[in-house]
Design a protein around this nucleic acid. Sequence first.
DNA 1: GTCTATAACTCGATAGAC
DNA 2: GTCTATCGAGTTATAGAC
Lengths: 204, 204
Amino acid sequence: MVKKLKDASAEERILTAAKKVFLAKGMSGARMQDIADEAGINKALVHYYFKNKEQLFEKIFMELSTSFFPKMVAIFASPDSLKKKIESFCSAYIDNILDNPHIPLFVLNEISQRPATFIKKVLKVSPLNMAFMSQQIDAEIKAGNIKPISAVQLMMNVLSMCIFPFIGKPILMNIMKLDEGVFRQLMEARKREIPKFIFDSIKK
Amino acid sequence: MVKKLKDASAEERILTAAKKVFLAKGMSGARMQDIADEAGINKALVHYYFKNKEQLFEKIFMELSTSFFPKMVAIFASPDSLKKKIESFCSAYIDNILDNPHIPLFVLNEISQRPATFIKKVLKVSPLNMAFMSQQIDAEIKAGNIKPISAVQLMMNVLSMCIFPFIGKPILMNIMKLDEGVFRQLMEARKREIPKFIFDSIKK
DNA sequence: GTCTATAACTCGATAGAC
DNA sequence: GTCTATCGAGTTATAGAC
């Protein structure tokens, strides 16, 4: 049975609140008081359930980063063609980010803040081996199916075009005179536009 | 006459130190003590030259954001062909970021934190009108020089591919097994690879 | 202009009543 | 399990000596 938010346990309400506050303000900008207020409970209770801010943050960070580094393995390790994989990835990944557009900036910012602390933890939970994908690209080139291109450059292009618009969203909306609705439509369209753009570039 | 850092005035040393500390930790993570230490002076002196943290931050933020939103106007408003402009932009802009690779994440993060506060200020100093560029793309399509593509999507692709690798640098280096030197080489190569990738895609 | 000392305040964390 | 009250460390900012 699905509980309403107000009926959720204190612990669940804290986690939901912490996710919202950390996403919006980051580790150093978030306040335990903000989280308690957002959860509608007392600050002391946050410490009752989670020993300290760091531990609560890490729990939220791991949860959010597994969303940002999703089960790409499933897509990338599949036996599909390169084209199919890139199409699947762009579509699934943009859909994924559309559900919570603040995750990319949050995750990349916190990782940049403390790479030694987080990169290993993140990649342990979401192993992201690009070697197979890289080999497949090289194989397609060798087979004469696509034009020569550096596999790393191509993978950077895919990731860049899918993720960056969400990171630069406020400024992009402003300089390109977009409103919230149009921005969303553009991102929906990118699920098809990016693969098209890529294969127009590398097809022979 | 160019002064050495140690000989620079206290005010200059504070600005240099503040730039370094804010870039590394952001507004909420930076400490006035960090800045004083980095400048090799007393904390009180920072307040003597700059009334408070907010004012010092804003000065640094404006300086760094004018580097992030550079004189694109000069490039975009030039009478050059679309191809020439995109080549010029990628080359100049990637060179620009290579000089201080932490600027993009810093600027985009602080803007996301307080869009209402900063977007107007930033765009007042660095007016970024994409309308002309957009019109030129549409004109090239109409003239039959390039394939049909949404101008906004194309501009997003250019910006994404130039900027994103610097934002995702720690994680990209890790999942693609790159070291610092190889990363730099890849970015140097992108100055040419991105325009090539784009025009392979949209040329007829 | 630069420093020491400290006031004023914020915030994470704990003690202890219920 | 949840609350009120408060401690104590850390931080911004100021006062005042030199």
